[in-house]
Design a protein around this nucleic acid. Structure first.
Length: 416
RNA sequence: GUGAGCAUAGCUCAAUUGGUUAGAGCACUGGACUGUGGCUCCAGAGGUUGCGGGUUCAAUUCCCGUUGCUCACCCCA
């Protein structure tokens, strides 16, 4: 009999790992609170159009990675491949622009992309996403980048690299785009096949190509920086100086081009040296024309998304602490099977007093029960006929190996 | 979508140029210890060797197919 397995690229996070996730998401929540971001819950599926228009028709995500289906009402629905478009949609739909600006929002949950799985890449994966909507100020970009760095600092991560670039705006990007196409024209035939198709659709991505020929060709290509308009240049300078002032070590990389169309001005990534080739723990930037792309008014925004799987992988690789693994405080042991109802009652009483307690349900020997106690708990409460007659409980400290006879009340007081 | 490697007990791995009953450690269960875990010893349970086909007297081993996993390309979190 063949068992039905989890679909390719998905996985179960079991008890030996889920507590680590609880630790990481708890820190995410703390940092969001400290930075003044409010949590929102968003739908896991949206109208397909939101992503086509928001993320960009020519992006890989939209072209070949979306889980799209028709629902029973004939609507085209897509499992969200990212969160920014949904965030902006929610901002517009709920008229958050009428409230205090910027609206600072965060959310965490599963995303879906149809890709070949590999280390740090899954078809269902969890992202933390934070967005500040409604402000153009470069200091908001600074706050967002600082947020991500503070998050990783609190998680204990090291060996990270922050990479920063500006990709311009609707005013200056077309100029640069043209200059780049002009430059590449003469050696078009030498470009790799994918870059040939990028030439018209998204020439900036050619800068990011890893093929040696394209790398060589683009070596002397015109730089984005030289083509930024005054506003973008000033924005970038202000952010750079701000990062400098907070002591952030940042590598400027003019070849950093995000794969999603909506980015303007700031683009950044944080890379981990302890992952495989999927080495970005976080990516983000500014997207001042995303709102208009999905039919809204002009709303500037900036944010980042961080992959929790990659964060956990990096933390494990670096031996970071995940706090304390939860375990039972008390394991209650029945000496004779006849007293099992009494220990059941004791377990209930302990639990009702907020003391985590457990017992054996397999009818096993006392020795085995003690073994479980040693594995799963700090203390054992041992009850047999003797204890019932004397109305006491044998209370054993499993770490010290010492034991004493105590009343129920004193045990509760001791453990509370 | 392309390429490479791997698939044996719950987990980590053995098994001679193809050879007869597929082993070990950890974990699990019971016992030595008839009311006490960790250390030690003994025993037990646990497998259609991913699946399907082929070659052979004989396949965990060789060949083909298939599925899955892993890593890389691509792209990104």
């Amino acid at each position: 009999m063949d068992i039905i397995r989890a679909p390719r690229g998905t996985r179960d996070i079991l008890g030996d790992e889920s507590w680590k996730w609880a630790f990481v998401t708890g820190i995410c929540r703390d940092v969001a609170d400290d930075y003044g971001y409010k949590e929102i819950h968003l739908p896991i599926f949206e109208h397909t159009e939101l992503f086509c228009r928001g993320v960009g028709e020519t992006t890989d995500v939209v072209e070949k990675e979306m889980y799209t289906f028709e629902d029973k009402g004939g609507r085209s629905i897509t499992l969200r491949p990212e969160l920014t478009a949904s965030m902006v949609r929610s901002y517009l739909e709920n008229e958050m622009y009428k409230g205090a600006q910027p609206a600072k929002l965060w959310s965490i949950g599963p995303m879906f992309r149809y890709e070949r799985p590999q280390k740090g890449r899954y078809r269902q994966f969890v992202q933390l996403d934070i967005e500040a909507l409604g402000a153009q100020d470069a200091y908001v970009d600074l706050e967002v980048i600082d947020f991500s760095m503070e998050l990783y600092r609190r998680l204990g991560l090291s060996n990270l690299q922050v990479v920063l670039n500006s990709v311009g705006c609707p005013k200056c990007r077309p100029v640069y785009r043209k200059a780049l196409q002009e430059f590449l024209k003469t050696r078009f035939d030498e470009l790799c096949d994918t870059c040939k198709s990028r030439y018209d659709r998204n020439p900036l991505r050619i800068l990011d190509c890893k093929s040696p020929i394209c790398k060589e060709i683009t070596e002397t290509a015109p730089e984005v920086m030289e083509h930024l308009c005054g506003e973008c240049k000033e924005h970038f300078e202000q952010l750079k100086n701000g990062l400098d002032r907070i002591g952030a070590v940042v590598k400027i990389d003019n070849r950093l081009v995000r794969g999603l169309d909506y980015y303007t001005k700031t683009a950044y990534e944080i890379l981990s040296g302890d992952l495989g080739s999927q080495n970005a723990v976080c990516g983000g930037g500014r997207y001042d024309n995303l709102s208009e792309a999905i039919g809204g008014p002009h709303v500037p925004g900036v944010g980042f998304a961080s992959g929790i799987e990659r964060v956990v992988l990096t933390m494990e690789a670096q031996g970071c602490s995940f706090g304390k693994e939860p375990s039972n405080k008390v394991y209650v042991v029945a000496v004779e099977p006849e007293v099992r109802m009494e220990i059941m009652n004791l377990v209930r009483t302990l639990r009702q007093n907020r003391i985590s307690a457990d017992m054996d349900y397999m009818g096993r020997s006392m020795k085995s029960q003690m073994k479980s106690a040693g594995n799963f708990a700090e203390y054992a409460c041992i009850i047999g006929r003797e204890e019932l007659d004397k109305n006491i409980i044998t209370f054993k400290d499993l770490k010290e190996g010492t034991q004493e006879e105590l009343s129920l009340e004193s045990i509760i007081n001791k453990l509370k």
